[in-house]
């Protein structure tokens, strides 16, 4: 009962006001930038397409929800969706999506912190590495990687491999009897045997604890399981992922989460503690870089379609919060299947794009 009232309070005190504020800001941005409110009848001037405002909010919601449930930001789904289905192919689509990718995971951050699915010891070095790498990435793009095609294809191959691995791990029966997955399955079975009709969920409020700090190693625990992580390696992973992601001009979550899930075998319920703060920091640095640093080299500033980005963010923040609240009901193998599917499709599109340019960007 206490849990239900806590969710209701979060919804009424935090989420609903945030949604209303972002919708008002979106409307104000439309009048400030264009002098009128675009939508389904009048085209957005920079995007040059007509899209109803409810569809932008829905697009933010579904991309925010499906990505936050696997610990990522909306960008990886939102960018190709906007460029293909919504036909927003103008150059402004990049800063507009960056705005959504920065604001949307904040809903997940608040949701997971309230669930106690946060651990700043775990997140710290990944995020420090991320901030450092994200500042270096754009300069690598301007110098060494002036033709990012082959590099992007290599990243695509790695992502496709990770995607296949995650899907295979989701279907592998042996995985379902051990670790968090085994525990989830056993407790769900026991719950059904007792005649409980509600779906089983990981009990609310179980924290991701710092069990011990042993020199350079950090031991974290969740629901009776433990993981021993080498902190300098966490820094290097954050640093490397951020350099790759910012050099390619994409978010870092879709690279970081498969590494944590496939290499470290961290459950999705735990890796969100590091991946959500990481994508927020990476997006913030990307917005700073593309607003202030890149124009110094290119001589021109690219403006976002602010109203579009803010309307999408209103749905995105709420969708990501809903993901944080419902993730513990979703079995780990479903989450792996989702993540594997998303990662694999993104990887295949990168490879295909190298040989046959796609009509949209990813």
């Amino acid at each position: 009962m206490k849990r239900e009232s806590s969710i209701k309070r979060e919804l009424l005190v935090e989420q609903l006001p945030t949604f209303v504020v972002l919708m008002i800001l979106g409307t104000a941005a439309a009048y400030g930038q264009h002098g009128f409110l675009p939508g389904g009848d009048v085209a957005f001037p920079l995007a040059q397409v007509r899209v109803p405002i409810w569809h932008l909010v829905w697009m933010g919601f579904w991309t925010g929800y499906t990505m936050a449930i696997v610990g990522e930001a909306a960008g990886i789904f939102a960018l190709p969706y906007q460029m293909s289905v919504l036909q927003f192919t103008a150059a402004s689509v990049t800063p507009t999506t960056q705005l959504l990718t920065f604001i949307n995971p904040i809903g997940a951050l608040f949701g997971f912190i309230r669930n106690k699915q946060s651990n700043w010891d775990f997140a710290l070095w990944v995020c420090v590495g991320g901030a450092a790498g994200a500042l270096i990435g754009p300069f690598i793009r301007l110098t060494v990687l002036s033709d990012p095609g082959p590099f992007k294809m290599a990243v695509g191959l790695a992502l496709a491999t990770a995607g296949v691995h995650l899907c295979w791990a989701a279907f592998r029966r042996a995985n379902r009897s051990q670790g968090i997955e085994g525990k989830f399955a056993a407790e769900a079975k026991a719950s059904r045997a007792q005649g409980v009709t509600q779906p089983f969920a990981i009990p609310a409020g179980i924290p991701i604890e710092t069990v011990a700090k042993e020199g350079a190693y950090l031991v974290i625990g969740f629901w009776g399981e433990r993981w021993r992580l080498h902190q300098p390696t966490l820094f290097l992973i954050g640093f490397g992922v951020a350099i790759c992601a910012s050099a390619l001009g994409v978010g870092g979550g879709f690279l970081l989460v498969p590494i944590f899930a496939a290499v470290y075998a961290l459950p999705m319920y735990v890796l969100v503690a590091a991946s959500i703060p990481f994508v927020i920091i990476l997006s913030a640095v990307a917005i700073f870089t593309y607003t202030f640093i890149v124009p110094l080299f290119s001589g021109s500033t690219l403006y976002a379609e602010f109203a579009w980005g803010l309307f999408a963010s209103a749905g995105g923040v709420f969708g990501a919060w809903c993901a944080a609240k419902t993730q513990r009901f979703v079995p780990q193998h479903f989450l792996k299947l989702m993540l594997g599917g998303i990662t694999g499709i993104a990887g295949v599109l990168y490879v295909v794009d190298f040989f046959h340019p796609l009509p949209f960007r990813i």
């Binding site: 397409v49 499906t66 419902t326 009901f329 479903f334």
Partner: peptide, 30 residues
């Protein structure tokens, strides 16, 4: 309470609705 048993499948339900809305948008606005 009746819809609670659908919670584990929610990500797939949301994706399915997204496909329907995308098809509607393509039909009306393209």
């Amino acid at each position: 309470k009746r819809g609670l048993h659908l919670l584990p499948y929610l990500p797939f339900i949301v994706l399915a609705i997204a496909v329907v809305v995308a098809a509607y948008h393509i039909r009306v606005y393209w």
